[in-house]
Amino acid sequence: MDGEVKRSVRFAVVSWPLFVAALVVAPVFISNDYMLHVLVLIGLYAILAESLNIVVGFTGQFSLGHAGFWAVGAYVSAILMIRLGLSFWTASVMSMLAGYFTGVLLGLPAMRLKGDYLCIVTLGFGEIVRIFATNLEVTRGPMGIPGIPTPQIGGFSFDSELSMYYLCWACAVVTMYIAARMRHSRFGRALMSVRDDELAAVSLGVNMTYYKVQAFGIGGMFAALAGSLYASWTTFISPDVFQFSDSANIFCMMILGGLGTIAGPVLGAFLLAGLPEVLRQFAEFRLIVLGLLMIILMIYRPGGILGSYDTAGSTRQVRRRKIAREV
C-alpha cells in the first residue's frame, strides 16, 4: 500500500462511523417534520447523485438523463404495488432490476458514443421515459399515480417522516458504501481506467464494452431504488416530477461536491437539495443565486468542493488532450 491509500483508509475508518452516527442521532435534534422531510429529500438525491457518480465520475460517461432511471424505478415500483399488490420490498427489488436493465439498454448505444453525443442520447432517454409515462395507460398519463402504499415490515408501517428518514438514509449509506468499495475493487479500477484512457485500458485487456454497460446498469439500478423510495414516500408520482431539470440538477450535485469522490455527491445533495429549502423565504431568488453560484464555483474551483485527489485523472487527461492538439 502506498501512502495515499493508507491515508485514505485511515480517513475512512474515522469518517464512516462519524457520518453514520451523525445521521442516526440527527432526528434527536430535529423534531420538526418539515426539516425531516427536507432531510429525506436530501437522502434520495444523495442516492441519485452517488449512482450517477458511478457512471460519470468513475467511468467518465456523460449522462444527462438520470431522472429517467429515477422515473423507471418509481413507476415500476408503484405499478407493481398497486396493480399486483406486491409488498414494497419485492417491488423495490423488481424496480432495481428494471433500472439495471434499462441502464444496460442505454449503455448499448453509449458504447459507440462519447462526450456531447452521449450527452444528447442520455438526455433523449430521460425525455423518452417522461413522454412514455405521460402517454401510457398503465402510468395513467399526466394524472399520475396516487395512493402508492408505504413500506411495511411486520406490523410496522413506514408512514412517518422519521421512519422514512431512517429508511432512505440507510439506503443512501449502503449506496455510498458500495460505491466506496467498488472504487477500490478490480471492477472499479477497470471503470476508472476506461475513464482515464480508453485506448490504454483496452490495450491492457479491459473489456471496455462490458464495463461501460455495467456502469450504466449499476447507476440505473441505484437510481431506480431512489425512485422506488420516492414513490412510497410521497405516495403520488406524475411525469412532471422527472424533468430534464432534475437530471441536470443531479448532475450538478455530483459536480459541485466533487466528481468521482464518495462524499462529494452527498455534499452536493445537501447543498442543491437542502439549501433551496432552507432559503425558502427567499424563494424567488434562490434559483437565481444557485445559478450564479454554479458559475462562480466553476471559475474558482472547477473540480468541485471536495474534488482534488480524484479529479487529478481528468485534469491529466485534459492536459494530455491539449498536448495532443498542439502536436
Partner: peptide, 10 residues
C-alpha cells in the same frame, strides 16, 4: 456546468 448555471440564472 457553468452553462447549466447560466441557464438556471437566466
Amino acid at each position: 456546468i457553468s452553462a447549466l448555471g447560466a441557464s438556471l440564472f437566466l
